[in-house]
Every structure is written in structure tokens, then in C-alpha cells.
Write a protein that binds this DNA or RNA. Structure first.
Lengths: 234, 234
DNA sequence: ACTCCTATTTTTAGTCT
DNA sequence: GAGACTAAAAATAGGAG
């Protein structure tokens, strides 16, 4: 048995609305923000819960773009556009047939694959080649292991590197930053605490779906952590 | 005053779940279906309510693809990928700045050149890998901090960190990146490669390629939900 | 535009068919 | 898998700061 008092209502609460174009500019903007955040959150949850890979792109009427992608926008669009079958997961359902794919446009599949492979190779070269140097420099900032190593004597001095080395270094570094940033964004989205536009965006990749030749792609598939998000206010 | 009888509950109703990978295959599939539908519905509602243009791509773990797009998948991806500016629309909200759109030039890297470069890189990879192995071996012998290159996916488990830790990590990284970027810029200037003041040091954070464009945002949706949808089982 | 609030609507986890 | 059902969880409209 519960006795319910007739308390005065503080707000009228949520109201049902019809799903039709909102005419009021302000409420349209507010709704856009709220629901956009809602969709990104749902997308992130879907990817975590079900191991699904998801991309969401939203254009506001003002033409501003917002997107979310796991493991990254780049990866999903690559898969989608190229018709490449994404890697199956171990606990995959058996008896899966080839995915029905919707080729977005004509493009050169071989070219895309070559580019992707090339970028991967480049990345590996850059990472491995600059490994020790990179670690040294980063350790200086991040701190951590204070052991001394054999390579510490050769002080990693940025001045000692040539332009190309520094550039490689920078590219690898940017890649790491992307991974961490992506993970950070995803965590915030899952957290529901995301403040759109407040954080540095994940650099997206140049890609053409319909044009004959593809991008030089700084491809760099966002990495295994994914979940990139960027946007710029409504 | 309301008297509530203690009726026997027919089901236990919805239960709270943690947002983490679902281990049970069946419930994962069911959840995938339900939530996927939920996201598509939300996307459609967003586009109707706010006149937004939206695309959603979902890959199941089985590699099957599902997507929704308004006005169409192709349109959204074209806009997103190419940076083409869609026609403006009267309905457009004021105050749109149509900011620095990055031209998508630089796209027609020649296929042959890409292949050739790929071969070159492949050759280098072998030797660089060898060098890396040696370094690792030496590191192992030296002992102490037995971590591998910290930025390798295996050695830094971002999933194991909480939001604050990742944020800290990110800040530190960004710091390093800035230093390297500054050095890079300086070198290029010294090199004569770059005219002083010509460009900001590192585009990283500004390197978005698909910058805001005007949407045509035509809301003359055929039905309540425009957009296309297709998909075929999990 | 963003945060906080709360009443209400909407979604969905679990179960059965 | 796909539907139907229920009750609890989550999202959100509207208002205030």
C-alpha cells in the first residue's frame, strides 16, 4: 500500500511530440544537439555491447558535420566503400555468407588496397625506425621508467635529426595521438559527458568515393581503438 | 490517494546492463538487432525533426553491413568524402560561417607511383624489422623496464585506463607532438622548404578535410522517414 | 549553446512463442 | 532470427539559470 500525495509538479516533464520538421529554430537546435548526442551514445554502446563496427555522420542544416566511428571513421568508410570484407570476429556466428555490400560508386579497388598497404608499411617503417628516439623524447615528457638504457647516451636531440626523420617521427606521433584521442572521445561518449567541439578532432582521411582515383590517404586507420568523433557546434 | 495492489509481476521487465561486451551469443544477436533498429529510428527522427542529413553504417561481427542514409547513403558519403559543397537552402539557419573548407586537391596520386612506392617500402620493411628485433633483444638483455615500445597497441592498453588517465596521457602526447611539430616547422623554414609564416606549424588539429558545407537539407521527405535502409540479418 | 532539473515518453532486457 | 509482452531503465521535452 502506497499513499501518493498530490505534490505540485515542478515541471510539466517531457511531452510527446510528433516526428515532423520542427519549425521553431531554437527548439530545433536544442533538439538537434540532444538527439545527436543520443545517437552517438547509442552507436558507441552498440559497438561495445555487440562488437559491431559503426559509423555515424550527421550534417546540421547549417552544413556542419559531426561524426562518430568505431574503430574509426576511416576504417568503416574503407570497408563500406571498397567492399572489403571486414575481419570476422572469433566468436562469430557460423555459417555467415558474404556480406551484401552496397558499392557506393565505381572506384579502383586495387588502387585502394595498394594505398592502404602502402600506408601501413610506411607507418611500420616510421614507427620501428624511430622507436628508440621516440621513446626517449616522450619519456622525457610523460615520465615513467627511470631506468637508464644503452641508447640514452646518444642523446636524442631533435636538432640532430634531419628533416625527413623528424617528419617520420611526427607522423608516427600523430598516429599515436589519434589513437589516444579516439579512445578518449569514445570514453566520453560512453560516459555521456561529451562536450561536442570541446576537444581536438580526429583528423579524418581524404577519400573520394565517386571519383576515379583515390586519395593519397593519410589513411592511418584510426587504430584498433577507435571511436573518433568531431564536430563544431550546430 | 491511490491504493496499489501487489499484483504478481508477469515478467521481471527490463534489467540494467553494463555497457560491456556481451558474451552470450544469443543475447548479443538479439541486442544487436534491437539496438540497430533503435539507432536507425533515431537517425530517421533526427533527420525529420531537424532537417539534418544523416548516415549510419553498421557492421555486425559477422561482417554484414546495415546502413541508413538521408537523403541517401551516397549523398552523405559524397559530401563527407569529397568536401563538395552542396547547394545552400533557404531554410538554412543564419550565422553559418562556412568556415575554412579544405580543398580536396592532392587527390590524384598516380596508381603506378603508389605501387612503386609500395614495393620500395616493402623492401625497407624487412631490414628495419631486423633492426627492431635486435633492439628488442638488447633491451631484453639490459632488463629493467621490460616494456616494449610503449605506443604499440599491445603495450599500452587504453581500455584498461580510466577517462582521467587517458586524458592525462593525451595531454602529455599533445605536448610532445607540439614540440616535434615546432621543430619540424622550424626545420622546414631553415630548409627553405617553407616560407616563413606561410603555414601554421602542424595542421594536425586543424587537418579536418571534410569541413562544413551547406546542406541542401531538403526536407521534402517522401514519407515520415526518408532515407534508405537495408540490411540482412545479423 | 550548455547544464541542471523533473515528469513523461520511449527504449529495451528478459522471457515466451 | 522475428514478434509480442511487460516492467524497468534510459532518453528527452520543456523550462530555468
Amino acid at each position: 500500500m502506497v499513499l501518493l500525495k498530490n505534490l505540485p509538479k515542478k515541471t510539466q516533464g517531457r511531452k510527446r511530440i510528433e516526428i515532423k520538421k520542427l519549425e521553431n529554430l531554437n527548439s530545433k537546435q536544442v533538439t538537434f544537439s540532444k538527439r545527436r548526442a543520443g545517437i552517438f551514445k547509442k552507436a558507441a554502446e552498440l559497438s561495445v555491447l555487440c562488437g559491431a563496427d559503426v559509423a555515424v555522420i550527421v550534417f546540421s542544416t547549417a552544413g556542419k558535420v559531426f561524426c562518430y566511428g568505431h574503430p574509426s571513421m576511416d576504417t568503416i568508410l574503407d570497408w563500406y566503400c571498397s567492399g572489403v570484407t571486414p575481419p570476422a570476429v572469433s566468436d562469430d556466428t557460423a555459417g555467415d555468407q558474404s556480406p551484401n555490400r552496397v558499392p557506393v560508386a565505381e572506384f579502383n579497388k586495387d588502387y585502394m588496397e595498394a594505398i592502404r598497404e602502402l600506408e601501413e608499411q610506411k607507418k611500420r617503417v616510421a614507427e620501428v625506425k624511430e622507436a628508440a628516439k621516440m621513446k626517449k623524447v616522450v619519456m622525457g615528457v610523460v615520465g615513467g621508467c627511470d631506468e637508464r638504457f644503452w641508447w640514452e647516451d646518444e642523446s636524442v636531440d631533435l636538432d640532430a635529426l634531419d628533416v625527413q626523420e623528424v617528419e617520420h617521427y611526427l607522423i608516427a606521433l600523430e598516429d599515436v595521438r589519434k589513437k589516444v584521442a579516439a579512445r578518449f572521445h569514445e570514453m566520453k561518449i560512453l560516459n555521456g559527458t561529451l562536450n561536442p567541439g570541446a576537444l581536438p578532432p580526429i583528423p579524418a582521411v581524404h577519400r573520394l568515393c565517386h571519383l576515379p582515383m583515390m586519395t593519397n590517404g593519410f589513411s592511418g586507420h584510426g587504430g584498433q581503438f577507435g571511436g573518433g568523433y568531431h564536430g563544431f557546434g550546430i
